[in-house]
Write a protein that binds this DNA or RNA. Structure first.
Lengths: 342, 342
DNA sequence: TCGGCGGCTGTTAGCGTTATCGGCAAGGGG
DNA sequence: CCCCTTGCCGATAACGCTAACAGCCGCCGA
């Protein structure tokens, strides 16, 4: 049922129908226990009957809060960001927030600031930034001060709370796993140079090799795509020294697998391969991929709660590290016996 | 620079600084040509100097428009919905809209209506629904009438504009391709029964088999996951009759590939396999997967423009079909010679 | 009996914008 | 010379809600 000749009911309509003042209706909705039970019931009945919905714009105009959170993110088509976004959204919904998104067309500081601006103009109550790039870090240092912001997977030297997966530990675990299988060293197919995740994994990998006193092969730079993994894999396949490869994500690992196979090198008998992410498909690669599972959902949840804290005034240097987990499958195996003449 | 002791500048501050009335400032922002160039310049200078940003809530309160579009979608972690969402967002941004999302935790009509409600309460100007389910169709028939809505990948008998990929044609192409390679018939690993896409593909597949007068094997139901493809693939691998399999998405095709290989059946020499979607990885499966490419981006764009039209009052039964494209790679090959005793 | 206090509800005054109407000056036609 | 138009701008009144204060009533203790 509607009042006012078909336009949606407003607070005043409810008040009239319930025989109370507008303020009382407002109270019923925002602080129910400050209204006598009987009155409250009458008001709620009126609300129901008129199918009344509070006008958020009006409420926001006076309270200054919109109940909307913003997420600015790079390519939400990628598995990681998509999962993180999804989980942020779930957490936010449960807490009564809506979520607006701003996908970044590029990785520049400028583009990131544009995304934040757009959200700010929309008057979001806070922003979560999913932009694991060096260049983004730059932007994160020049944010409008009054806006609560947290970052996902950002560096450590920025003035906003950060939720992230501990990339170094993850990479270290994968690398140690390969060494423990008897491989002399481990080659690394990395992600793009401006991705923090990529660099964190390089550090983890290199750290283990160095402290175990192993040779550190040159880093091979991919771009996260299977194609790049394939191309670099072809390179690796030519070198008979290579018995263990750690790829910085599962897609590149897939490319490596294919390149090795095409070159006649068996996985895992001749070469072991490990990935990173544990995308749902990797258990069905051939062979099933040993990889490092990142709990993106956990990261999303953490990010959301950090933002909540931040909005409540918490300090700017909170950090939330999520531990990744090594998932051993069939793409890694003991190193082949050294060639006879060695 | 700020005015009013540090709080953000409002329209009135700009007006005072520029020596004009508030209304004139408003006009400069919304209908620039109705203001003398000189005045406009003065106002714009003041805007700049005060770093003035219009308060959207106030504007919305009086105009009734928010400049925000809503997208309600199932699991945005899946490749298809994620791509569609991404592209909707791009298109919306370019047209000056923001986008809010509501991911659905379940596929029920109720859950979908909840998503729409949430967005409606947020006062979005329109909604795009990405919920390719039978159950969603039900909900689509009971939407608040005054809200502009378009659907992605929905059925045909609903009262909202629809943008979708022509699933039947896609499936038909894959099936015809396999028949043309000499296979007697084609087995089908389908998606969940309540997904429209899954059913559309079944129809396309069945249609081709029937009109070519081939036996129609029983449909095998998966759940889109590689795991389900793997399990059903094991079943298929046991049947020596099976020489061609069409899976309803690439993930399940991956599972099928693995099951066949484990059972000792070579792909494509013994069995041909085709998928659907053309996810970025499928070119690096082993063997590289023949599949049907869906242009999700195109769908996203269409959906957005349909919504724009709808908001402008266009009819409710607009339809936009996107043609999918067969991508032939190495997982399909001519049928093996019939067994000697046949 | 009265002041005071606590529980409940109403009144008033904005929040920052745009719609609407109206005014004023300059210019053009009768 | 006057009237009417046209171009530009300003005053006022909403839009729908809540913060802040004010008022009423009944009950308590003094």
């Amino acid at each position: 049922m509607r009042s006012r000749d078909g336009r949606p009911a407003v607070l005043m309509d409810v008040a009239v129908l319930a025989g109370v003042s507008a303020m009382t209706v407002s109270r019923v909705l925002n602080a129910p226990d400050r209204v006598r039970a009987e009155t409250r019931a009458r008001v709620l009945a009126a609300v129901q009957e008129l199918d009344y919905r509070p006008n958020q714009a009006a409420r926001q105009l006076v309270t200054g809060r919109s109940g909307v959170l913003g997420v600015v993110s790079i390519d939400t088509t990628l598995y990681g960001p998509a999962s993180t976004l999804y989980c942020i959204e779930q957490a936010a919904r449960n807490a009564g927030f809506n979520v607006s998104i701003a996908s970044l067309p590029s990785l520049s500081r400028r583009s990131m600031e544009e995304g934040v601006e757009r959200l700010r103009d929309q008057a979001v109550d806070g922003v979560i930034i999913v932009a694991p790039h060096e260049s983004a870090a730059d932007g994160l240092r020049h944010l409008p001060a009054e806006m609560p912001v947290v970052a996902v997977d950002a560096g450590d030297d920025i003035p906003v709370p950060v939720a992230k997966v501990d990339q170094r530990t993850g990479a270290a675990r994968a690398t140690r796993h390969l060494l423990s299988l008897g491989h002399r060293t481990v080659w690394h197919v990395a992600g793009p140079a401006d991705w923090l995740d990529a660099n964190g994994r390089i550090e983890g990998w290199r750290g283990v090799l160095e402290s175990a006193d192993r040779p550190v092969p040159e880093v091979l730079r991919g771009d996260w795509s299977s194609r790049s993994g394939y191309q670099l894999g072809q390179q690796l396949a030519r070198d008979p020294e290579v018995t263990a490869v750690f790829a910085s994500n599962d897609q590149m690992a897939l490319g490596v697998l294919r390149a090795l196979r095409e070159a006649g090198r068996r996985v895992p008998e001749d070469v072991s391969v490990a990935g990173f992410d544990d995308i749902p498909e990797s258990a069905y690669f051939w062979p099933p991929l040993t990889t490092v599972r990142q709990d993106f959902h956990e990261v999303g949840r953490h990010a959301f709660h950090l933002l909540l804290d931040r909005m409540a005034g918490a300090s700017v240097d909170a950090r939330r590290l999520v531990e990744p987990e090594l998932v051993v499958r069939e793409s890694t195996a003991p190193a082949p016996a050294p060639a006879p003449e060695a």
